[in-house]
Nucleic acid binder design. Structure first.
Lengths: 166, 166
DNA sequence: CGCCACCGCGAAATATTATTGCGCTCGGAT
DNA sequence: ATCCGAGCGCAATAATATTTCGCGGTGGCG
């Protein structure tokens, strides 16, 4: 069972750093109830073992002029592994594509895209995405507005789950 | 035109902090080519003016036991503003819902959900989401695997755009 | 029951970093 | 040409991160 190797303090650390990735180590240590050195050791261990993949500033795309956010549902002609991988690799090369997830169901992939304006996205859509090899269908939906955007792990759910299994 | 108030150094700072949110200020200053104090002043300004919304550790959900990721397409019965807001507010209250975006097209909302296992999600789906007031239809797609996940701004696109408009 | 190796912790010392204040320079406007 | 403001770099100080060291608790084994 993944997660079992983590004690409550580790999970607190993860929750705190997810909420504020620039918290100083002393503040973090204070919040989780241990002193700074072991706290830092725990953080390093969590980083090296892959529980923490990295730290990122959350930059406001709209403020920077990226007014357009689009979800694109992509269907492929062939779902052979080689063709799936090829499409994924192509997505990684497109800067406008920020996320690419493979799905079950009628649609093969969902892409989250960001663009400065509609025409930039349209150009990408018609000349790159739709035109790409093996792409059978693309359905796009513009994001009107965002209501919630908190990537990461719901630690309250995790704690509840651990409490019940104890 | 948003973004015009930022000079190339500011944009470099944003790009660096988006890539590594825990970079020390001296390292950041070194990379963008100025000394530490003005660099820190710029970062503070970017934070206060909202270009930087915050910093977050990127926690590996799968390692923590959240094996299930699902996209849910939700259609409502009424699209009156009050009903849309009510649904958004409900989404903010659901821990399993990590993102909620309002869309154009046939579907009203797309939700990105994370759950420890399928049965937890199923319970949420049937007893909470589908059962919620004003919800007309829900279509879900399980994420088989992720191929790209880099939320944020494609700064290379931004720079190209600024270069051409200069 | 007692002994010993093994972790993880905390306190102190050191190195690194953040932060503040000040004088300088470069452009733009009068 | 001169004034003025914005932004920079430098130096000093405060805060923080990081390493080192010794202690106490725990589990395995004689």
């Amino acid at each position: 069972m993944p997660g079992s190797k983590l004690d409550p303090i580790d999970r607190m650390i993860l929750a705190e750093l997810q909420a504020d990735g620039r918290m100083t180590n002393v503040e973090l240590a204070r919040r989780v109830g241990i002193s700074a050195p072991p706290c830092l050791r725990r953080v390093r261990t969590l980083e090296e073992s892959g529980f923490i993949r990295g730290y990122h500033a959350d930059v406001d795309a709209r403020e920077l002029g990226f007014e357009v956010q689009v979800f694109a549902m992509v269907g492929l002609q062939s779902q052979a592994e080689a063709d799936l991988s090829a499409f994924e690799e192509r997505c990684r090369g497109w800067p406008l594509v920020r996320e690419c997830h493979m799905l079950n169901g009628e649609v093969d992939f969902i892409l989250k895209c960001a663009a400065p304006d509609l025409s930039t996205f349209q150009t990408f859509l018609t000349e790159e995405l739709t035109a790409a090899e093996n792409v059978a269908s693309v359905k796009t939906s513009l994001v009107i507005r965002g209501a919630k955007d908190e990537p990461g792990v719901p630690f309250d759910v995790l704690e509840a789950r651990i409490a019940q299994s104890a």
